[in-house]
């Protein structure tokens, strides 16, 4: 994934990361597993792991905002 993370999205994702418990680790395929602190560093750098995580967060926020999330859950 070659896209970049906008500064606005970066701030949102970093804020969301603050809410994640410190004993959680994200397993993201062959990219590895990452603690909250490691994820923060990847997002700040805007490297491929950071981009993948930011996109997951963005997809979710878009689904919430558009109503797609509620629609799919109600189906």
């Amino acid at each position: 994934m070659s896209e970049k993370i906008s500064e606005e999205l970066k701030k949102i994702v970093l804020w969301r990361l603050e809410t994640i418990p410190s004993h959680f680790k994200l397993s993201v395929g062959n990219q590895g597993t990452f603690t909250k602190e490691e994820l923060k560093q990847h997002v700040e750098k805007g490297d491929p792991i950071g981009v993948v995580f930011a996109h997951m967060q963005l997809n979710f926020m878009k689904a919430l905002a558009s109503g797609e999330f509620s629609k799919r859950l109600a189906e």
Binding site: T19, P21, F24, M56, F60
Partner: peptide, 26 residues
């Protein structure tokens, strides 16, 4: 699982889990 997590959204990590479940599902 997402619906259950929404009922526990004040639990640490609940919304982060809902976010990943949503991504995997879609």
């Amino acid at each position: 699982n997402i619906l259950r997590l929404l009922g526990q959204q004040n639990e640490p990590g609940a919304m982060a889990s809902a976010m990943l479940l949503w991504n995997n599902m879609t």
